[in-house]
Structures are given as structure tokens and as C-alpha cells.
Design a binder for these strands. Structure first.
Lengths: 196, 196, 196, 196
DNA sequence: GATGAATGAGCGTTCATTCAT
DNA sequence: GATGAATGAACGCTCATTCAT
């Protein structure tokens, strides 16, 4: 009954969600500055004032999307910490599991991923936070005896973030590799190295 | 008499170089869109038309900087290929040498680095090109017997690019690590892995 | 209540029409290049962005005015074709009628006339089109037996266009002659010639 | 001896004449506003300051060209007055002679013609002056008994100017008719009219 | 006579944002 | 909740013109 007679896109929350989704795609495709509010509202079939009913400003909607990304990513990163008591056999697979989660997220939300990881001025911060979390994980894992301590774990963590970053752009989003493949390879490299 | 050597065009080239340098810094600091020509010329102590005496447009000067970056980077990447006949002892150091070159470049030209690697819409292409070059190097090195072949070298190459990328931002430009340290750590990780 | 009839878009159309009218006058008075958008909007009491709400560009509004002129002129020219079965007595008056129509149009819309006939880069085309239409009329009229065929009707047609052109500028718009006088004189000249 | 070692276009008067000629063509082709001094000097192989050595301003060079046109045209118009004592036989040919002179001038100096007759803001004045001169001629010719007096000679004169104008653009410069053809047709029309 | 370098002045256009309804 | 209309504030760019040499 609350919905009777509604034109498409004119329910409050619906409009908001629609705008948010369209904005994400537009930002991802054209970048922040080349994305025009006028375009977003056109695609959402609403007028410009309607946009400002739901979002304070262009920057605000962008930051909202950013925040969305950051939260989801943080969850994934935290979840990827290895539990104690794993046998050596299972180690690689467990590590890969965490990476797969991240890659899956990037596969399913490419727009959000582009915004939070590449477009946003605070992408560096986001990556730093991710690295910090990973470092944390690694340190526990060293303590748990999984890894040796001959390397600076902060550097390893940032290295991993960088690998995820570049492989997402160059391999995942281009369709050249799947999340599983990438995860497996990263594990292979970082765990055993290249040396014969 | 001190100026006798300056023939025609000399002052012009100076102005041009000045604008180019300032533009690089401005773009690096504020990004493409928030960089205003009016600001660049103000800092260069010239008027706006002077800018257009030397550059066709805002986009043109940006692309010129991009190109500058790409060329220097390509040189460095090519130079980092390992020559044949290295003994196993020298291997890590030689690999690190190539990385150090890249990190030094980023240290000495941070503005150019930001432009070409982070700001430019074609940054992804640049990184892809770098990865391709590194992959090339790696494949020769596999053939030369330096590395085993259990991993996809394209993924390794992209991973390395990602590591360089993230470590530059998070460690090099923040002053937390030197080029040498980063290079050594990367070598340690990628050559031997983390496994105990 | 007086305004009840004005539904959505009504004020917008008003602004648009106002801008169009003012622009016509400005273009006519100062020419294309010396006409500034800033001046048009000032006279219309709106801001510059409002202008761009209704017109794509300065060139676009100019072309719209041009087109307006061309269409009205084409109607008038077509309407001035003589119907068949006129007796010789009525001929001069009928011909004059067509000319009067054109001159009236130029009297009532001098700005449009200046734009379409003098300022526009395509004025030559417009005149050529008018001449072609007149030639068409003349040829039917020759066939109908009104005129002899000793002259090239394309030249006559262009000659008439030229006369209309110059007399409009030199006589009509200066107030030295009325539309009726000019029409009558043209008829007298072109029908009978000057020879004693 | 005065000429030894000169580079092309660097003799004072030569440069001036060259600039004048190129400017005429540029103005004729692109109109006043779309003609850029930078372009003129480029085509003349001189620098911008050199231009200002010879001409006070863009407007000044344009006006100089205008003046050139006006003077030559005035001569031609004056020369076309019919001398007394012509027999009726020779009349059409003599009148045509004057017109041919004008058309020849337009054929040989199209750039100048475009400038003085179409581009210049004072084109209307120039045409008015020409019309006045023609009217003068016509009045003497009426007095000499060549023409009847049933028409307003000022209107005839302006009509002739208009015909010349339009036929020059539409027939002469397009190559559709020669000066002689146009002159003959105009005479035929204006002397005898179209009526059967 | 000629030039390399530079500029004052200005214009068209864009876009996020807001009022009045 | 939604809209038609309007705007403030910039910004990139152009071009005729002029120094200093």
C-alpha cells in the first residue's frame, strides 16, 4: 500500500540506493572529476535537487562509497588471520583462502574497488591500513612459528598489498586470471621464493 | 660578456623548463584537476599566455611529464636485466641493484613518479609495460638457470611492480626505508620466501 | 490565479525567447564577434549559465536565428509565385505583391534580416537559395507566357535578389522609401526597362 | 648593391607589400576576426613585431585594403559615365562597357573585392557611394535624353549596385558567367525589361 | 630592419549547488 | 519527495600588441 502509484525510482530509499549505485559506476569509469552530478541524476531519472536531498555534496557521496569499501575490506583482512595450530600441510591453502576472499571482493565490486583503492585521495591510507592489519597478522603468525623472522614484516605486508593491487588491475579485472589462480601464485612466490 | 653564450631561444628554454618543473610539483601535490594553470604561472613568475607559448594545453604539459617518466623508467627496467654467467653468490646483489635503480629514481623524482605511476590515467598501462619488461627479464633469467619455473612469471612480474609501487609510497617517500633496504628485503622475500 | 495557466517550463520558455530576441538585436547591431554573451545576459537580466541552459553555445544561438530567418524567407519567396490566368493588367501589381511581402518582412524583422542576409557566413547560400526559388518562379511564369525569354532567368533572379538586398539596406532601413515604393519601382524597372 | 645579402622578404617595402597581399587573401578567405596576425606573418616569413613596423594595427591594415578597394572602384564608376552624343545603336554597348570594367576588377582582385564589398563594416557606405555616383551618371544620361524619367534614379542606381553585388558573388566568382555575359544581361534587363 | 620573449585584457564555457514552488 | 529554473565562482585559452635587444 505504501508503494501504490510510485513512478520508478521515486521512493526515497530506492532513489538513494539507485543514486549510490550509479554514482559508484560513474566514478569508477570516469574518475571523480569527470563524473558529473548532472550525468548521475540523468541515469537515475531524477533531477539535480533530488540528488541533494540524499547527499550533501558530490564529495559526500564519493566519501560514502569510499567508506563502504574500507569497511568491507577491513573485515576481509581481519578474517584472513591464520588461526593457531595449523599443520604445515594446510598452511599454504589457508593463506590462499584469505587472498581469495579479497580477490573475490574485488571481482564482485569492481566499482567500489576502483574508488577505494585507486581513485580516492585516501587510497594510500586505505592501503596503509590494510598493510598494517596484514603486518599484524604476519607477526602473530611468526610468533606462532609459521614464518621465519629474517625479513621486515612491515615490508612484507606492504609488498603483499602492492601485489594484490597490481594483480587485481592487471590480471583479475582483465580476466586473465581467476581469484584462485592469483592467490595460489602469490602464496607460491611469497612462501617459497623463486630460487632454485 | 657573461651572457654572450646565450643565443636566441635560451631564455625561452629556461622559462619552459621552469614551467615544466613547477607543473610537475603542482600536479604531484594537487592532482591534475586541482592543479590550476594560473597557479603554475604565478609560481613561475610569468603570465598565463607565456604558458601557452610553450605548451599547447594543460593536458599537453601533463602528458609531456608522463612521457618523461615513462622513458626514464623504461631505461631503468631494461638495464636491470641480469647478464649471464653470474655466480650464485652474486645473484641477490645484482637483482637488488636493478631495484635500487628504480627506487633511486623515485627518490630523486618523486613528482614525476607520482604523475606517471599514480595520477596519470595511463598509469595502469605504464605499470603493465614495466611488468612486461620485467617478465621478459625473468624469462631470460629462467632460461639462464637462475630461477625455477614453478610460477607464472607474468604474475611474478606484476607482483614485483605492485611491491615496488606500494613500497615506494608507504616506505620510500615516507622516509621509513631507504632504497637499499627495500631492495634487499624484496630480494630476500622473492628469492627465498617466508617459509621457515 | 492570473498565473494558473503557466505550467512547468513556461518561465523557461520566456527566458529563452527573451535571450533569443536580445541576441538577435545584439548580433544585428554589433556583428557576431563583437557580440558578447556577457552583454546579452546582462540585457536579459540573467546570468551567464542561464544562457547555456537554453543554448549550446554562442554559435548555436546564432545559427538558430539564421535558421529562423531562412525559413521565413523561404515561405515568402515561395508564396510570391504568380498564379496562372492573370490578365496583363494585374501582372505588375501581383509581382509587386511578392516583393512587398519580402520588404515587409525585412521592415518588421530588421535584426533577423541583418543576421541572415548580411552577417551570416552562409548569407551567400541563403541568397543563392532565394535566387534559385525566384528563378523557378520566373521559369513557370515564362512558360505561362508572362515574360519573354531573351534573358537568362538565373541572372534575372540573382539580379532581383541583389536589388532587394541593396534597396533594403539603402532605402528601406534608412526610411527613405517604403516597401510599397520599392516594390513598385523594381517592377517598373524590371518589367519595362529604362529605355525611352 | 643596396640589395646584397638580403634574405627573402626582408627588404622593407617588399615585406610591407607582401604582408599587404597576404593579409588581403587571409581577410578575404577567413573574414576579419578569424584572420590572425600570427597567421599572416607566418605566411610572410616574418615575425609579429615586423608586422607592427609597417602597420599600426590589425584594423589599420584592414582599412588600408578597404581604402585601396574604394579608390579603384570609384575610378571605375566615374569612368562609366556615358559621354554625350552617342547614337542609340551604341548605347547598350557603352553601358555594358562600364559594367564590364567593374566585373573585370572584381575578377582580378577578388580578395580586395570581398574585403571592400562584403567584409568591411563600411561596405554599406561604399555601396552607397557607388550608387550615388551611378545615380549621378544616370541623371546626366536622362538629361542627355537616353532614358525616360518614369523611375526614381536613386532606386535604379541602388538596384544596379545590388545586381552587381549579387551577380559577382553568385555568377562571376563561381565561374558560371563571364564579366561580358553578366554585363550584357544586366543591360538587357534594365534597358528593355522582361515584359513581352 | 628585425626578432625572441612576454603580456594585458578578455571571453566562452562548465558545474556543483540552491531557491521557490 | 520532487522539480524547473537559476546562479556564483571559476578556469582554460586566445590574440593583438609591445619590450629589450
Amino acid at each position: 500500500m505504501a508503494q501504490r502509484g510510485r513512478k520508478k525510482g521515486s521512493d526515497g530509499e530506492l532513489s538513494r540506493a539507485l543514486l549510490l549505485r550509479i554514482a559508484a559506476d560513474e566514478f569508477a569509469e570516469h574518475g571523480y572529476y569527470e563524473t558529473k552530478i548532472s550525468n548521475i541524476v540523468k541515469k537515475a531519472n531524477v533531477t539535480q535537487p533530488t540528488f541533494y536531498l540524499y547527499f550533501k555534496s558530490k564529495e559526500a557521496i564519493f566519501q560514502e562509497l569510499e567508506e563502504l569499501f574500507r569497511k568491507k575490506l577491513a573485515c576481509l583482512t581481519i578474517d584472513s588471520r591464520l588461526e593457531e595450530g595449523l599443520d604445515e600441510q594446510a598452511l599454504p591453502e589457508r593463506i590462499a583462502g584469505g587472498l581469495i576472499g579479497v580477490f573475490h571482493f574485488f571481482t564482485e565490486h569492481p566499482s567500489l574497488g576502483k574508488i577505494g583503492f585507486y581513485l580516492s585521495p585516501s587510497a594510500a591510507d586505505t592501503k596503509a591500513a590494510m598493510a598494517a592489519q596484514i603486518e599484524d597478522n604476519l607477526l602473530s603468525e611468526v610468533e606462532a612459528g609459521y614464518f621465519h623472522q629474517n625479513v621486515d614484516m612491515s615490508i612484507v605486508a606492504n609488498g603483499l598489498v602492492g601485489m594484490i593491487d597490481q594483480l587485481t588491475v592487471a590480471k583479475l579485472w582483465t580476466g586473465k586470471n581467476t581469484a584462485d589462480e592469483l592467490a595460489k601464485e602469490i602464496v607460491a612466490i611469497v612462501l617459497n621464493g623463486l630460487k632454485k
